Computed example of a mutant assay.
Amino acid sequence: MPVSTEMFDLTGKVALVTGGTSGIGKAVAAAFVQHGAKVLVGSRNQEKVDAAAKELDGIADVSGEDPVAAGVSIDVANGGSVDRAVRKAVDLFGGLHIVVNSAGLMCKKPSFDLTDSDFNDLYNIHVTGSLRVAQSAGHIFREQHEGCIINLASISSFVDLVEVAAYASAKNAILGLTRSLANEWAKYGIRTNAIAPGFVPTDINRKMIEGTDRGRRIIEHTPMGRFGDSSEIAGGAVYLASPAGRFVNGHTIVIDGGYLASGIGDSVAPWEKDD
């Protein structure tokens, strides 16, 4: 029996995407709009918020004067800011059904040099920030007995990358947070999952992996022989948020071009020289 395209239809759903003005968050927001959802994108930079919302509204394949995308200034490190963003989604679009926790930052530093502030800042955004958004939206989800939370984990949730201990630790914590909320909140009709992207160049990591020895070694270890693209991560979010993913709860989907599966194999590095 073929799978209907309606299984991936998000028409009538409203999503809030933090970190939605660039990179993976923006790609997820675009994919949601293309599949029929209305989307509120947020970040701390109002100028970027306005530009992203305008761009997203322009790609919607719908007619009419009502926007399908809007922006909101949100700081996930501040509970009041999070609550205001959640209320704005409801006020603008009449409800809220999906949240994607994509806000993040990077700290590349030798572990001997890490400070308490380095660690706490990353945890406050990635982990506590994700919890703040989940809690605020969760009150709405619980009342309507329907909701989908998608957290952003990372390939570094599973493997070590040197000099990113604070980031890796936070992304490991996302796995535990995802499982805990999935286990506790399913009775309220709330599903919680995560996506762990492989190596995708974005604003927070591009200088670390593009044109660097680290990037060369990453591609060498990736069976598909390349970095990923943000749009390739977005498909996983559509699946988790759509009717196709309605029985998926507490899982982390890895989208990495085979990086975690790779052991010792043929070299696939594009710059490998012939003998």
Rank of each mutant, 00 (worst) to 15 (best):
S4A: 05
T5A: 14
T5N: 12
E6C: 08
L10D: 12
G12T: 00
K13C: 07
A15K: 08
V17R: 03
G19S: 09
K26C: 10
K26N: 12
A29T: 03
A31H: 04
V33I: 15
L40M: 11
G42F: 04
R44V: 05
R44D: 04
N45I: 06
N45G: 04
E47Y: 05
A52N: 10
A53F: 07
K54R: 13
A60S: 09
V62S: 14
G64K: 09
P67G: 03
P67T: 07
V68K: 03
V72N: 06
N78C: 14
G79T: 10
A85I: 04
V86H: 08
R87D: 15
R87M: 12
A89L: 03
V90Y: 00
I98S: 01
V99P: 01
N101S: 13
S102L: 11
A103S: 14
G104M: 07
G104S: 09
C107S: 13
K109G: 00
L114Q: 13
D118K: 01
F119H: 06
D121K: 14
D121P: 07
I125S: 01
H126V: 06
S130G: 15
L131W: 14
R132N: 14
A134D: 02
A134L: 05
A137W: 02
H139R: 15
R142K: 14
E143N: 13
G147S: 06
I150L: 10
I150C: 11
N151M: 06
L152W: 07
L152D: 03
I155W: 00
S156C: 13
S157H: 03
V159W: 11
V162P: 10
E163Y: 05
V164C: 01
A165I: 11
A168D: 07
A170P: 04
A170M: 02
A170E: 01
K171E: 11
A173Y: 05
I174W: 13
I174R: 10
G176I: 07
G176F: 08
L177C: 06
L177G: 05
R179S: 08
S180T: 15
S180I: 08
L181C: 09
E184H: 02
A186Y: 09
G189Q: 04
T192M: 01
N193Y: 08
A194E: 00
V200M: 09
V200D: 12
T202H: 01
N205I: 02
N205M: 03
I209H: 00
E210C: 10
T212E: 05
T212S: 08
D213H: 10
R214A: 15
R216W: 09
I219V: 15
T222N: 08
R226A: 12
G228N: 03
D229E: 15
S230M: 13
E232N: 09
G235T: 07
G236L: 03
G236D: 00
S242F: 00
G245S: 02
R246Y: 13
H251Y: 13
H251R: 13
H251M: 14
T252L: 12
V254E: 09
D256A: 10
G258K: 03
Y259D: 08
Y259H: 13
G263C: 02
I264C: 04
I264N: 08
V268I: 07
A269F: 13
P270I: 10
W271G: 00
W271C: 02
E272S: 14
E272H: 11
E272T: 14
K273Q: 12
D275M: 12
D275N: 11
D275C: 12
